[in-house]
Amino acid sequence: MSTIANALQSQVGRKILTGLTGIFLTLFLVAHLSGNLSLFIPDGGESFNLYADFLHSLGPLLWIAEIILVILFLTHAYLGVSIYLKKKRARPENYKYYKSQGGPSKQNFASTSMLISGSIILLFVVLHVMHFKYHLFSPETYMVEGTEMVDLARHVSEAFQNPWIVAAYTFVMVLIGVHLKHGVWSAFISLGAKNPKLTPVLYTVGGIVALLLSLGFLAIPLYIFINGGL
């Protein structure tokens, strides 16, 4: 057991953890987006609200899922920061001239800005949860059979008519695409994908997954904003 604990702190172990947490966070995004797309069902947001009610009805199961998500986020962010700090220590004096060789190199805007894109995503997630889960910024509730309820679909629809909110979401959803452009591929390599014929394909597949997730999440605020509501 102690060897496994040591192994997780080694360079290889940390990287495998980064990859695993990254993949699970990506899977969470897929699930989250699938649920959110129910907003596009033309029933005034009823399906979406039913989906939200269903999640709430899970009770303790939902809490467990939420705790796991928090742990995934924190572990992933901690590893990302520690990798960055180690990189600084590993080369205190930088090159005066430095250039990527190109070719098979995956050094690009996405891969060199992982910590920045990740940190903005983390800040966004906190605000996003305060906004749509705890309704901190627009607490408009109504009573149904003695309990306080929120028309979540209406809340979303109203929020996304505010150009500032839409602009902020657009920015962050693009950043998620940027993070995952390098992230998906990188996670596969971290988890040991080593078939030389497959790895270039993985990079393309990672890019497509990143693009689809980014576009999917972008579609909701942009549609509501342009359409003037759901």
């Binding site: 360079q11 180690k86 590993a90 080369r91 060789q101 098979p104 190199s105 891969s111 990188s186 390599i189």
Partner: peptide, 12 residues
């Protein structure tokens, strides 16, 4: 040495 972020610059 630092961690590997799968940049693949080494291969290049």
């Amino acid at each position: 040495f630092g961690d590997c972020s799968n940049f693949a610059e080494c291969e290049a």
